[in-house]
């Protein structure tokens, strides 16, 4: 903990970066984003691994980019998001330093995309209880599964916190905000909610960094991460695509290959 305060403070003092995007303790005791531009303010930085927000979401924001060079405190998923944002030409990587931690809790500075990818490879993959939950849902009958999601989506009021918290939902004008033509119903109706959540999950298929920011952001606690995680699994199974493992990978849903399997067409 003290190490991150020290490193961030140093970077601001010697002008290596102009802004540190990290976490601080919020008034409800949870971690929340902190934006620090003065070395003496680095004392409030905390990192205890329970951070629910993926700070990569701020790297594409105009008012953050304007600050200059940025150090961002990154968890594994944040790093994977940075790689995808880089691949999709959304960030200038030379303006970003990712601060993360090795297995001994030492601060590691990652200054370019190759270092990030190397770090992620070394860190390896870990499974969590979400995979078990997906298995549980897969065991359901089609009808049970449909009812499960209908019940979940019925709680949605379309506040779009899931979209806002996602580092990869960076579109300036989302499909749901387009009205000529209008692709998706605007009101939080049964159809509108279903359309939105299917669309969101499909647009993240194979891009999602599995940071769980969407479900953490949902005021209603809808487990949206199950959808994106499931699609990540599918994309990996079919195309061996995994965010954060290489740059310039082709994004499964926008790429055409003559060798693509067509056995799903029945």
């Amino acid at each position: 903990m003290n190490k991150i305060i020290e490193v961030a403070g140093e970077m601001l003092t010697n002008g290596e970066v102009q802004l540190v995007v990290g976490y601080e303790k919020g008034s409800n005791g949870n971690e929340r984003p902190a934006f620090i531009d003065a070395p003496e303010a680095c004392n409030k930085l905390i990192f205890d691994g329970s951070c629910k927000i993926n700070l990569a979401v701020y790297l594409t924001k105009k008012h953050i980019k304007q600050k200059g060079k940025i150090a961002v405190i990154a968890q594994k998923a944040t790093l994977a998001s940075i790689v995808t944002l880089y691949t999709e030409n959304q960030i200038a990587i030379e303006n970003i330093v990712a601060l993360t931690f090795d297995a001994n809790s030492n601060v590691v500075k990652l200054r370019n995309i190759d270092e990030i990818i190397e770090f992620l490879k070394a860190a390896g993959k870990s499974s969590d209880e979400l995979d078990d939950k997906i298995e549980e849902i897969e065991k359901m009958s089609t009808e049970e599964r449909w009812n499960f999601w209908q019940e979940q989506f019925s709680k949605c009021f379309k506040c779009y916190a899931c979209r806002a918290a996602c580092p990869l939902c960076y579109c300036e004008r989302c499909t749901v905000d387009q009205n000529q033509p209008q692709w998706v119903q605007v009101p939080a109706t049964k159809t509108g909610n279903l359309e939105w959540h299917i669309m969101r999950a499909m647009h993240l298929a194979g891009r999602c960094s599995n940071c769980n920011a969407c479900s953490n952001a949902c005021p209603q606690g809808i487990p949206l991460n199950l959808l994106t995680r499931k699609l990540s699994q599918e994309i990996f199974k079919e195309f061996k695509y995994e965010p954060g493992t290489a740059v310039h990978q082709t994004y499964a849903l926008s790429d055409f290959n003559i060798k693509d399997k067509e056995n799903f067409i029945k």
Binding site: R32, P33, Y58, Y160, A217
Partner: peptide, 9 residues
């Protein structure tokens, strides 16, 4: 509003 993500929650 530095950290505001621009949702409607």
């Amino acid at each position: 509003s530095m950290s505001c993500l621009g949702c409607g929650a």
